[in-house]
């Protein structure tokens, strides 16, 4: 493993709403090594995208990072001014958004929109250099050079997503966040895009954060992963470990809710209840109301949520360790 590129430590982020603060990200910590891909998985509304937005500090106006630190190659990002952040965005951390359909400005050419990003961070480049760079990128993601002079509406969904990947790579960022990059696409194109991402990652040695609600995709794409529930990380470790020996009840249920192509046929399990409201400060384990087999201490909410290391690099929530 390479050196640590991105270190997130005890990150807390909440949204100010009329009903009170909504704690969307609670004490999230993880480390991303160089050339590694890290997966974030969880159901809708569990805070995956909030984590991604906090990394770039592109949160909505009512969102506040209350504590914690985000270090990119040792540089602290929390508390940076807008102008300092601008130099980090795209150059340090870039993002592949979900829904490529709407991520392109409809009235500007694809090439111009990529060029604009490069121009912002490499102001001394000549026009030829930038054109060359874009051609290179298009070559990597498998797009024709003529796409440069096309408008977004002239491309198919898959092409737009490929172009978005090219856009994300345009400034050679240290970290790329892929926020559900395949959600809006059909399965065949999804597969192509995933392969493309994987190829790009190996080719360029990217450090990738992959966000998805689809645990199967995470299994295919990542080296390490974290499972999020209600704003907190409940289990984190090498992807293979988590898939083979899931510790947390939620992870287990998540795995059992996806059909497996190999092995015995099993009935898929679903989870009763709804994710908890994040407005009230929950004491104890936030998953215990839905947990199929909570321990007595957990049910009485006596245990605080805390990750403990159960084997090397594999962390899980304290109370579920005590349950299982």
């Amino acid at each position: 493993m390479g050196k640590e590129v991105l270190v997130v430590d005890k990150l807390n982020m909440h949204y100010e709403t009329l009903d009170g603060p909504v704690a969307a990200v609670k004490d999230v910590s993880f480390v991303l090594n160089e050339g590694e891909s890290f997966g974030l998985v969880g159901e809708s509304g569990c805070g995956k995208t909030s984590v991604a937005m906090s990394l770039l500090q592109l949160q909505a106006d009512n969102a506040k990072i209350s504590s914690g630190s985000i270090k990119l190659e040792g540089k602290e990002l929390v508390g940076m001014t807008e102008n300092e952040l601008r130099t980090v965005r795209w150059d340090g951390i870039s993002i592949v958004f979900q829904g490529a359909m709407n991520a392109w400005n409809p009235v500007a050419k694809i090439g111009e929109q990529i060029r604009e990003a490069i121009r912002e961070h490499r102001p001394d480049n000549t026009k030829q250099e930038n054109t060359q760079k874009i051609e290179e990128l298009f070559n990597i993601v498998g797009l024709d050079n003529s796409i440069m002079d096309r408008y977004p509406h002239e491309l198919s969904g898959g092409m737009k997503q490929r172009a978005i990947i090219a856009l994300a790579l345009s400034c050679d960022p240290k970290v790329v966040i892929a926020d559900e990059p395949t959600t809006a696409l059909d399965v065949v194109i999804q597969d192509q895009i995933l392969k493309e991402l994987k190829k790009v990652q190996n080719l360029l040695g990217l450090s990738l954060i992959y966000i998805s609600h689809d645990i199967a995709v995470i299994a295919e794409m990542t080296d390490n992963m974290a499972v999020m529930y209600a704003g907190s990380v409940v289990e984190m470790g090498p992807t293979a470990n988590i898939f083979n020996k899931p510790k947390h009840a939620y992870t287990r249920l998540l795995l059992e809710s996806t059909p497996s192509v190999v092995g015995k046929r099993k009935k898929l399990r679903s989870l009763d209840g709804e994710p908890p409201s994040l407005i009230n400060e929950n004491k104890g384990c936030s998953f215990s109301p839905r947990c199929p087999e909570p321990s007595k201490e957990c049910k009485n909410q006596e245990l605080d949520m805390k990750l403990v290391e159960i084997s090397k690099g594999h962390w899980a929530d304290l109370c579920c360790v005590s349950c299982g």
Binding site: R89, W90, D91, S94, F97, N105, A117, H121
Partner: peptide, 9 residues
């Protein structure tokens, strides 16, 4: 949002 993420002014 994309434009902001790109670090444009």
């Amino acid at each position: 949002l994309t434009a902001r993420a790109k670090g444009l002014s």
